[in-house]
């Protein structure tokens, strides 16, 4: 079965098995391994991507559901070698330790900015409610997102 969608700004057409999940389509078929798979049950948020301007768990969607959608993955954040301000601030504020949650955190924060360019700290906390980090204690992540909102 073939599906057609926009991926990081490019029209994409993929032939795939009917029961493939989005996270597998990205990582296995399209070699976009920035998106991570953690829990596989929609709890950890490591697999977060953006579909039609909304953050979603790519482990909880069948690839078929992407038909006609506009998709952004963590690979779509930077402009070539130039990092997105969120990525720069995650580095600057130490929002990354092991790094496994980082792509998901970035995408949840990016989705927040699409909806609300000037979020409060509470808005940020709500936006990353579905993203687990077991290293940082969240504080530097929230600081990095706050700093990006104010720049």
């Amino acid at each position: 079965m073939t599906i057609n969608f926009r991926l990081n700004g490019n029209d994409t057409s993929v032939e795939l098995a009917v029961n493939k999940r989005v996270v597998d389509l990205l990582r296995e078929d399209l070699q976009l391994t920035g998106t991570k798979e953690g829990c596989s049950i929609g709890e950890c948020g490591a697999c977060t991507i953006i579909v039609n301007s909304k953050a979603v768990n790519s482990c909880m969607l069948l690839a078929q559901q992407l038909e006609g959608c506009d998709v952004i993955t963590v690979e779509g954040l930077s402009d070539g070698e130039k990092l997105h301000k969120l990525q720069e601030n995650f580095l600057k504020y130490g929002g990354i330790q092991c790094g496994f949650c980082t792509p998901g955190m970035l995408m949840s924060a990016y989705a927040l900015f699409l909806e609300n360019p000037k979020p409060t700290v509470d808005d940020i906390k709500t936006a990353i409610e579905g993203n687990l980090c077991r290293c940082t204690g969240y504080k530097p992540i929230i600081e990095a997102i706050s700093a990006s909102a104010n720049s």
Partner: peptide, 9 residues
């Protein structure tokens, strides 16, 4: 309900 990601889906 659940998380923002799941509420979007």
């Amino acid at each position: 309900i659940a998380s923002p990601q799941l509420r979007n889906i």
